[in-house]
Structures are given as C-alpha cells and as structure tokens.
C-alpha cells in the first residue's frame, strides 16, 4: 500500500497551521439600530438609524451594508480597491444575493461563500490560506445578515403576530469586514480548523443552538487535538453564534470528553444584545460573529486585553424547504485562531 502524503501546512486531522500568518490590518463594522443600542454599540463603526437605511427593500439595505463594509475596510487601510486581490464573502439569503449585489460595483475578484452563521470564520480561513499560500497579498473577508430579510426568507413576514419561542435566536442586522494582508500590523491568523458537517437529528428551526452545539464541540475538540493545545492556551474561545442553549450544551459535550473550557468560553450571540432587548436565546446570523469580530474582538486584541482567541463560527445549514420537508438541521463549525 502506498503511504498517503500529508500536506506540509496541514496539522492533524483537519487543521492548518499558517507558516506566514496573515495580519488583520483593518476592520469595519456596520450594524442596525437594535445592535447599536446593545452592549457593544460603541464598538461599531456605523450604526443605522432604521432598518431600511434609505432603501426600498431590506435586501437592498443588506447589500448596501456589504458594499459599505468592503469600501470602508479598504479606505481604513489607506488602500484602493485595485490593491485587493480577492473578496471572500457570504450572507444568509438564497444565492447569497446581499453579497453578490453589495459588491458588484467594487470591481474586485470575488469568491462567494455560504456557511450560514459560520461564514465569517470560513472567509477568514479561506482568506488566510490565499495570503499564506502566496496567492494573494491582500484579501477581504466579510459576512452579513439582516434581521428582516432573514425573517421573511426563513420564518414569517415581520408584521405577522407571532410569539417567539424561548429557544429562538434573533438575526443580527449588520455587516463586518476584515482586511487580511501578508504585510502590515495587526492581529495574526495563526491557525484554523475546518469543520465537518455534523447532524444530530435536531429538526426545530426555532432551536438552532441545539442543532449547532455538536458541530461546535466537534470542531473545538478537533482543534485542540490537532494542535496539541489545551483550552488554557487561549484567553477566549468565542463561538458565533450558539446562543445561550447551544453554549451550555457545547460545554457539557466537551466536559464529557474531559475538555473544560467553561471559564473562557463565550458566544458572540450573547455579547451583542442585552437580555432585556427581547432576543430569547441570543443572537444569530452571519452578520453576528462578523460584526463582533470586526469590532469588539479585534479591538480587544489590539488593546492587549486578549493575546490569543479562538473564533468558532457555527452555522445551521437549513433552508425553509428542508425543514418543511421534515429534514433535520446539518450544522458546521470552523475555528480560527487569532493572536496579537
């Protein structure tokens, strides 16, 4: 039998160690009014006054946010669009329309990604691969979501009288972008663990935290195993976004494997809103981890509050068609290790 060769930068079963870690040289975040009123409100670069942002439809609003996030993250780095090699981006809507329409005027080569709420982690991973591999000098990773555009696609028209279930999560309105570069100053992306699809048979679309928790636990355990690390090697392990229920299940799943991360494990879906804002189990949406990472987390890294964090993007890969046909919810989690 012929031995199977392992790639030089691959670590363990499903991880990558970057040899020339790309730097996050600039970030930008734009959010809706409700997010602006939340605990992280002051960390965001732009807070919209209303959910429309001067547009006729919420799909247009979301696309506009994506465009502004991309343009601003370039300006912040004192660069021009032609200096950017690729944009890697996605959102929650069918055919990732917000992203496609949002960046159609930017004139930058583009990879469209779909990973539901894990899209930002996926984009950071792919972007870091391109930069570390020498295929790009500068790339933008971005993800977005909009509460109202997501509601009408996944659930109900927003004016419909529906009581939200205590297990449900609130889709964030926002777009966050990070500019990764081979040269420059900023937090470095040193490693990543690419998740597998995990499906433990959860069918309730109003309970995505429970659906995603096994995927999160799987990826976190694989990450620590592949790199031979312990949770204490990180100052913060932050999922995006399991919500309250998913977070506590993930803790228990990891405890069963003798991995104790409770004292440093948190969730972007619990950071962005106050419980008093009526968001049930927490926030969700591709924009959630994207805006929290591109604002609060990167700022905390730059300020030295954290030296090393592990961002674990978690996505529930369902659609209205699949849950109406009674399918369970396939889930995924990607982990990105960032150091200052």
């Amino acid at each position: 039998m012929q031995a199977v060769q392992t790639a030089a930068k691959k670590v363990g079963k499903q991880s990558i160690a970057f040899q020339n870690p790309p730097k996050i040289v600039s970030t930008f975040s734009i959010v809706g009014p409700k997010e602006g009123q939340g605990p992280l409100g002051k960390d965001f670069d732009t807070v919209l006054d209303d959910s429309y942002y001067g547009e006729k439809t919420w799909e247009k609003t979301e696309a506009k946010m994506v465009g502004e996030a991309v343009n601003n993250v370039i300006q912040r780095a004192n660069l021009k669009p032609e200096n950017i090699d690729y944009v890697l981006a996605g959102d929650l809507l069918d055919q990732i329309i917000s992203t496609n329409f949002g960046i159609r005027d930017t004139d930058i080569p583009f990879f469209g990604l779909y990973g539901a709420c894990s899209t930002m982690a996926e984009a950071l991973t792919m972007g870091a691969i391109l930069v570390d591999g020498g295929y790009a000098s500068r790339v933008i990773a971005t993800a977005s979501s909009h509460f109202d555009s997501a509601e009408r696609q996944y659930r109900y028209p927003v004016e419909l009288g529906v009581q939200r279930k205590p297990t449900s999560q609130w889709t964030v309105t926002g777009s966050g972008a990070a500019l990764l570069a081979a040269e420059g100053q900023g937090p470095r992306i040193v490693g990543a663990t690419v998740g597998k699809i995990v499906d433990m048979g959860v069918k309730d679309p109003n309970n995505m935290g429970t659906a995603m928790a096994p995927a999160a636990a799987d990826t976190i355990a694989a990450h620590l195993q592949d790199f031979g690390k312990s949770p204490r090697d990180y100052d913060l392990i932050v999922s995006g976004d399991l919500g309250e229920i998913g977070l506590s299940i993930t803790k228990e799943l990891l405890q069963k494997q003798k991995i104790e991360i409770s004292d440093r494990f948190y969730d972007t879906g619990l950071m962005i809103f106050d419980r008093a804002q009526g968001v049930q189990a927490g926030a969700s949406g591709a924009g959630c981890s994207a805006v929290v990472f591109s604002s609060h987390l990167v700022k905390e890294l730059q300020a030295g509050k954290y030296k090393r964090i592990l961002l674990v993007g978690t996505g529930a890969l369902l659609s209205p068609v699949t849950y109406q046909q009674g399918e369970s919810i396939p889930s995924i989690a990607h982990a990105v290790s960032v150091e200052m």
């Binding site: 205590p166 297990t167 433990m200 048979g201 959860v202 309970n207 429970t210 928790a213 229920i245 506590s248 299940i249 228990e252 799943l253 189990a281």
Partner: peptide
C-alpha cells in the same frame, strides 16, 4: 436528544 433536553428552557 436526552442530553440536550435538560438545557431547553
């Protein structure tokens, strides 16, 4: 399912 059950509000 059994494990997740006790976390459900």
């Amino acid at each position: 399912k059994k494990l997740a059950q006790k976390h459900q509000p």
